[in-house]
Each structure stands twice: as C-alpha cells, then as structure tokens.
Design a protein around this nucleic acid. Structure first.
Lengths: 170, 170
DNA sequence: AGTAGCCAACTAACTAGTTGGTTTGCCGTT
DNA sequence: AACGGCAAACCAACTAGTTAGTTGGCTACT
C-alpha cells in the first residue's frame, strides 16, 4: 500500500521511545502505533536497538535544520533554541534517554554541527577575549538548564534567558 | 547476620538504577550487588517500583544535606552544587531517570527545600529588583546545564560558572 | 521460640525476534 | 485485455529467553 511505511515506523518509534525510553519501549506497541506490523520493523531496521539509533539520528537532524545557528545574535539564538525545545518536549526526552541509555556515545551530526558553531563564533568575535568554545558552552548550558527546569511563566523565562545570554556576550 | 541489610540493598539499588534506570534495572542483579537475596528486597520494600522511589528519596536527602544553601554567596553555592554533581555523577543520572520515568512527580523533599531557598534569598536581598524565585531559577538552570554539558577543563568550567552567576547577581 | 537470613526451584507473564502462508498492487510481456 | 512474476505488506502463531514476584525448606543467632 503506502510507500511511506519506514517513515511511519520512524515517527511511531520516536513517540514510543520518547515516552518510555529504549528499555521501556515495546516493539509490538511501535508496530501498532505505526499501523504496520512487526516484520516490517525488522525488515527495515534490523533490531530494536538499531531502530532507536536511527530514530535519534533522524530527530537530531530535524532539530539542527529547524534552529539555524546565529553567531551574531547569540541571545536570539538561545531563545529560539529554547522555544524549539518548549514546542517539542518529546525531542528533549528522546535526547535525554539517549544520553542515559547510550552513555558516552556522541552523535556525528551534533558533533560536526558544534564544531561549525565554534568556528562561526570565532570568525565573528575574533580570537581576543573569551574563547569561543567556552562562550558557546555557557550559552548552551543556560538553554539546557532552562529547558529542564522550566519556570512557571514562559514570558519571564524568555526575557530572563535573553538577558542572561546578553550579559554573557557583552 | 548484619543488621544493615536494608541499607546495603538501598545502596546496591542506587547503583543499579543509576546505571540502567527503572525499566532497565534487574531485581536479581540488585540482590547480587547487595550480597543479599531477593526475598529480603520484597520483604523490606514491597516491589521494584517502591524500591525505586525509596532510593530516589534517600539520595535526594543526601544531596540536600551535603550542599547547604547559601543565599549570601550564590556564586559559591552554584560552584559547590556543581562540584557535588561532578563528584557524584550517578546521583545526577538517578535524578534524570526519575524525571523521565516518573513524569510529573515532584519529590516532597526537594519541593520544600526549594521553597526554603526562595524565602532565604528574599530575606537577604529584599523584595526590590529581581524576583528571588526567578533568580534562583536562573542559577539552578546554569548549574544543571553545566552539569549536563561538561566542558573539557573543570578549572575553566568552575571559573566560568562562578563568573556567570556573579554577573546574574550583580 | 522467634527473627533474620540464605538457597533454589518455581510460576506466570511478558518480549524480542522468527516463520509460514496469504493478499494486494504494480509492471512489463504477450 | 490477459498473464505471470515480484515485492511490499498483512495476519497469526510460534520459539526461546527473560523477569517480577512467590514459596518451601533450611541455617544461625539471640
């Protein structure tokens, strides 16, 4: 029937893994959510573990495409990244599961993307003053932290985050 | 024999849960790590789920005792909290697992402790200027973020964290 | 006698992964 | 239009291993 079966499986698996993690997810449930049957999962992705890896890579790519880095406007970038996280809580959960259940495994996409960000930042700000990698680390730490400990009022959080990054940059 | 069997079980369970999470942990493995046998686990703690809750509560208490809040020296508090996290990575993992596998469940200890912190902060800084809860939120966000995305050099991270919180406070 | 503990086997349910047989739509050939 | 092959997909049962939780019988200390 539909030629998009692998896509449907990936999406269903993303939901299931985001909710329950790798160990808690059930292959039968993924098949049911995808409106497909189990053998298709094993035919396309081999195993539960491989499916998990594919899902995480797939979603990371979507994140990196959706929130382009802006070395000139770091506070704006931080806010946009936080907003994306706020709008896609299941992606945040998926990345946390990955960090916990695949300890020490770095994702190729995010590593190379990070290197590009540092280079762009250095090009804009020059080599003097704060090292670019440490500045970027502080900005991302703020975004991650704010994402994990969401304040009650998003408007305040947005303003606070923007202000905090502005102070870091200035 | 030893009357500290419940304690040994709690410690072994903390290790197992920190490594594998609730869904990934195995009761038999906990018993083996504790040098005890399974029935003692069920006799003392009832079920795997209840054991998980007890472990998390137990460790949260240890954290709150080990790192007392200091409303006067927020940068120092932030650094001490980060250092504790750095020295106890398994506790960080345990809390992340708890956040993921028990969504929406707040821990009574940490909620009341948080309220005490906000009150102490308000008492020191007065009601003018930045609201105490938002300031504390920013500080904790920084610590959490730095903990999750550890820079390569701890000395730099320490200095950056101290500086960032100082700028927030000032 | 009673309490805390150990050992080992057991149950009942669950789960990743497999297999056999069947259906459906597509595409080139006749 | 009719035919034959082919790949994607479905259904359902099955295997084999795992796992939370239980039970019964035994030991040791107090």
């Amino acid at each position: 029937m539909a030629a998009d079966t692998p896509r449907r499986i990936l999406d269903a698996a993303a939901d299931e893994f985001a909710e329950r993690g790798l160990a808690g997810a059930r292959v039968d449930r993924i098949a049911e959510r995808a409106g497909a049957n189990k053998q298709r999962i094993y035919a396309y992705f081999g195993s539960k573990d491989q499916l998990f890896d594919r899902v995480v890579e797939d979603r990371i790519e979507q994140l990196l495409d959706a929130v382009p880095f802006d070395a000139v406007d770091l506070p704006g970038y931080a806010v946009r990244l936080w907003e994306f996280n706020l709008a896609h809580p299941s992606l945040v959960r998926l990345l946390l599961w990955h960090a916990l259940e695949r300890p020490g495994e770095q994702l190729a996409h995010s590593v190379s993307s990070h290197e590009r960000k540092v280079a762009a930042l250095r090009a804009v700000r020059g080599d003097d003053g704060w090292p670019a990698d440490r500045l970027l680390g502080q900005v991302l730490a703020l975004v991650h932290g704010v994402t994990l400990a969401p304040g009650p009022d998003p408007e305040h959080v947005r303003a606070d985050l923007h202000g905090a990054v502005s102070r870091l940059v200035g």
